[in-house]
Structure formats: C-alpha cells, structure tokens
Nucleic acid binder design. Sequence first.
DNA 1: CTGAAAGCGCTTACAG
DNA 2: CTGAAAGCGCTTACAG
Lengths: 340, 340
Amino acid sequence: MASGISLKELAAELKLAPSTVSRALNDSYEISEQTKKKVLSMAEKLNYHPNPFARSLRENKSKAIAVIIPERINTFFAQVIDGIEEITQEHGYHLLVYCTHEDVEKEKKIVNLLLNGRADAIVMSVSSQTSDISHLHKLYERGFPILFFDRICSEIPTTKFITNDYQVTLEATRHLIQQGCKRPAFLMLSEDISITKERHRGFLAALKEAGISHNPEFSKVCCQNEETNIEILKNLLIQENRPDGILASVEKLALACYQAVKKTDLKIPTDLKIISFSNMGIAGLLNPSLTTISQPAFSMGEECARILIKKLTKTNQPALANEVVVIPSKITIRASTMVE
Amino acid sequence: MASGISLKELAAELKLAPSTVSRALNDSYEISEQTKKKVLSMAEKLNYHPNPFARSLRENKSKAIAVIIPERINTFFAQVIDGIEEITQEHGYHLLVYCTHEDVEKEKKIVNLLLNGRADAIVMSVSSQTSDISHLHKLYERGFPILFFDRICSEIPTTKFITNDYQVTLEATRHLIQQGCKRPAFLMLSEDISITKERHRGFLAALKEAGISHNPEFSKVCCQNEETNIEILKNLLIQENRPDGILASVEKLALACYQAVKKTDLKIPTDLKIISFSNMGIAGLLNPSLTTISQPAFSMGEECARILIKKLTKTNQPALANEVVVIPSKITIRASTMVE
DNA sequence: CTGAAAGCGCTTACAG
DNA sequence: CTGAAAGCGCTTACAG
C-alpha cells in the first residue's frame, strides 16, 4: 500500500537524475545548497516518502529492533519497552515486539523468524522455561547483535543487564527476619533461570547469616497456571509447619499468595509476611499494601537501547561486549511486612 | 546483518534458475514435486531465509501491522495487543508497536512515519487529547487500512471496535444508586474522546431515571499528572457537598481516587463507593477490592486482527467497512460498592 | 515443467 | 556539482 510517489518520479518532476535527488535528500556534501533546497521543497510538496524496503534492501539494514518478552501484562516489561522506545525512536528505529507467553517453542519460532534480517538486533528477556538454547546460539554464531535483560542467558557471550538480585534479596530476607519471620519461604519461577538462582542464593545467604535452617519444600517451583499456583500455595500454608514469611521472585506469585491466603484463616502480615519483586504502581493499594523490590525497568530499557544504538549506528563497532551490567533495585517497605 | 545465503546462491548450488527455485519455495503449481523436494531440502540444509525486504519491495507489502496505543502500562492495551498478535502471527504478520503516551504530537509523528508503507495497516486507539485529526484523514485519503478500537475517531469512515459504553455505564450508575449513592460523580479523561462521551451519557441517563440532578462539577476532566489528579480529587472529596459515589472511566483515575481518599477521613465504601472501568486482574486484591467494568480486551484484539487479515490477504477486498462493532463489557461487583 | 529478463525503489561507486 | 549504471534479493509475466 506504499502508493506514494517514487524517487524516480520526484526526479523527473525536478528534471534531475535520481542519483542527484537521492543525494540531496540524504544531505550529501556533494550537492549544492540550491539544489538541496529545490529538492526538499518539491519532496515536501509532492509528499514524497522514501520506500523503507528499497532502502533496507540496498543498505542491508532494517532500522527495526526486535524486543522479545515473556509477557505483556507485566508492568516491568512494559516499562522496559517504554525505555527502549524512548531512545531508539530518536534514531529512527522501529520496535517489533513479540511475546512468548513463557513458551520456549514460541520463543524459538520467533527467533528463527528473525534470522532473515527483519530486525537489526534483538533485545530479549528469555522465556522462563528456556533450557535448550540452540536457537540463541544460532543467533550468536551469525554475529547477530543480541542483548539480554533481566532474564538473561549466561551461556551467550554478549551484554546483559540485570539487577543486583543477590544483594537485594539478601537485604529483603534480612528484613523479613528482622520483622520476626522464623520460617521464611522463597517462591521461584523456574530452576533454569539464572536470575532466579541469584535471588535464591541471596535468600539462602540471609538464612545462613541468621542461623535459620532452610526447608527446601518452601522454595517452590511454580507453573504458569494461576489456579494451580494458588492451590499449591494454599496447601503449603495450611500445613502445621507452614512458612511465616514469603519472598516472591515474581509479582504474579505474590498475588497468588494473596489469593491463597484468602482461602485460609491466616492474616497478612500477622501470620504471614510477604515481600515481592514487583514494578506495579499500585502495590501500595493492595490489601494489605505490598512491600516490594522494584527494578529500574525504564532506565534498564534506556541503557539497552543506548548500547544497541551505538553498536548499530557507528561503523566498525566490535561485537557487543561480554559483560553483565548490574543496576540496583529498590526495596519499598509497606504493610505486608510490618510488625503489628 | 542479513548475512545468509541468497536465492541466487541457493539456485547455483542446485544448478537451477533462481526463478525455478523461487517458485518451488513458494509451492507453485508449475513446479514438479521432485524439484520442490530437492529445493526444499537444500534450502533447509543451507539455512536459506528469504530476504523480507526484497520480497516487500517486490510485492509492495510489508507483512507488518502497526499498533498505536496511548500507554503500555495498562492491562487493557496489553491484552488487546496479545489478541492481535494471536491472530496475525498465524498469518505471518509482524507487529510494530508504538506508544503515544497520550501525546497528539507524538501520535502525528508516528502516523506520518507510517505513511511510507512500513506497515500494511494500522490498528489504533487514539491519544486522549486528539482533536486535530488531519494526520488520520491523510491516512484514510490514501486508502491506508486503518482500524480503531476503544478510543475511536468517529470522523474517519472505517471499522471501529468499541464496547457497550452507554449501556454498561447506565447499569453501573444504577448500581451505585441502588447501593445508596445520592450524589454520584463521574470522572472522565478528556472531553473530545467520543468513548468517554458515551460513558458520560449513560451516567446522565441513569441519574435522570432516578430523578437525581447532576452537579457538573462532579464530572471531572483530568490531566496526565498523577499527583495533580490526586490533589484535584482530594479537594473534591473534602468539600461539604462531596460526591458519595464515583464512576471512573479509566483505571488510573480510580487508583488516584484510592490515593486521594487516603488523604481524607473518608472510608470506601462507607462514605464513598467506587466503580471503575478496568482490566486489572488484581482489582480484587485492592483495599477494598474494586468493583470493575472490564472490557473484552483480548477478543477485541482478535476481532480487529481477523478483519484486518481478511482485508490484507484476500485480493480485491473493498475498503474496511464504515461500521462500529460493539462488544459488551462486564461488571464485576466487589467491596468498593458494597452496602455495609 | 524450467529459464531468461525485467523491475520493485533505493544508494553509491565511477565518470565527467 | 551532476548523471548513467549497476546492484541489493526477490517475483512474475513471457517464452519455450
């Protein structure tokens, strides 16, 4: 439907060669100011828009960046994308956004689709179940610029953005213990996600420090189905030796906890204290308000984008550095972890 | 970075003409089964991926659909996009997602950028402040397929998806009145959004029906700044003749109400009942849980996509019909509107 | 059933 | 400073 006028037609109208017009539009030093002005005004008048695909084909770049996330209905990811868009838009890049719904097969399909060059780079947070990473290796081997954030893939040597998960979880768990928790529980999403591992390490370190032995049954691997999660949690909470503090590594699980608690006689924070990783603006409006660890999502997106733009716009840039950039998260204490 | 092998190289490897290989890959009836098999297996072996831009240039279609929304951090829009992706992905379409942040100038820039054919169609929810719609007219005049959902632009004759705003607001307001509200207030986002108008009409109809006169001061036009909104609401709530029921046309404003109430001595639902348009899954976990009107976001996205796919994939399709498709919303009653 | 040729709309060496 | 020509990687009439 790109029904507009072409460069050739514009040139004919101006009685100039297409090459000259092209150079004038691209502000080449070879063209006189007078010609440039004439070309520009005529282009404006005739509503000329260069065909992006001809340009992409010729220059072998798409001017598009693919963003792959596990879910859209999640404030964190939405904020990251906002941050990416903020920076990339200034440089004329477009965002192709794909959602895996935590499904590795879908992730593979998307990644394979992008092998054809439709995007110049990929920014992604891997699907929670990702274990087979051959599709990511393929990208890397081809020299395709790829950058991870939050849910990173350690095996691929490229730039990764994460938060200070170990440290902040250590502090969060200390907070639970200070508030009187004797049997804190950690809820994680999936074992093969490195970021969750760090969070779990921080949790264990805090327990060790306080001389609390860890009940491995309290570290729950959860599934995608919300109902099932609530059921698992409810069963955990009604047993005699139930946890009295919960650290959720994902917002979804904290909310499932709230739901599960409703099905028991327990009260938050009296019987159970909860803290969760979450970027929801309304954590403070929950009942009771939720103590959160929020990640610097927007600036993380911006940083990803800046590095990418540098790589994509400057010539002879080396491959993306194999480094892990750590940005600190922030703990906001609210009612769900208050001592009565 | 589309560094892969080209059709020409693949053809050379097969000792066939590029045209034959192209036809074989596209499963043309002109090619023998044997040749097709040979070509397909070699393409697989050499990891051939057709260049999307060459194809787009040749066929004059992008295989991309642009989605323009006012904000990303909003469950409703996220769900709609999920729905659009669900359908379009099956047909090989990619989603370019743009966020206007409720800024008309940004919306104009994005729309003008899309005039070059980078996307085959646009699905959009207009920015709240949209009043000058020349940029949308331009699209329409060029025959560019454009489809509106939720925040529609009535002046452009194309297919629009909305919810039964008048009817559901009428019912929601009746509910407030039944629950004892004598001075219900309606909160709207902006006057020039047609969808908000319908909601306001439904509200007024319910008041009339109940013989309640409307205090226009209670129909608030709110701004983008959260702090300011909270301040406006607080001031509204501390006056003597304050509203005793609130119908928020946007989730954001209901949350601002919760915040504003915290700054007063009022209690929800005792002193003030609140109902809001919202697709948040966690409305039930707010304090108190929030009565909501939720829109069928996912299926709305799916429906948009189906119509678009039909238009884009079948030849000789007429322009998108100038019709308004209405999908019903659902009221979920929770604590925020309960009689004590 | 297969192939040679033209062309989609750009950009950029190469000439002058 | 401007222009003619080639080519990016496809597809599709047109031949045979």
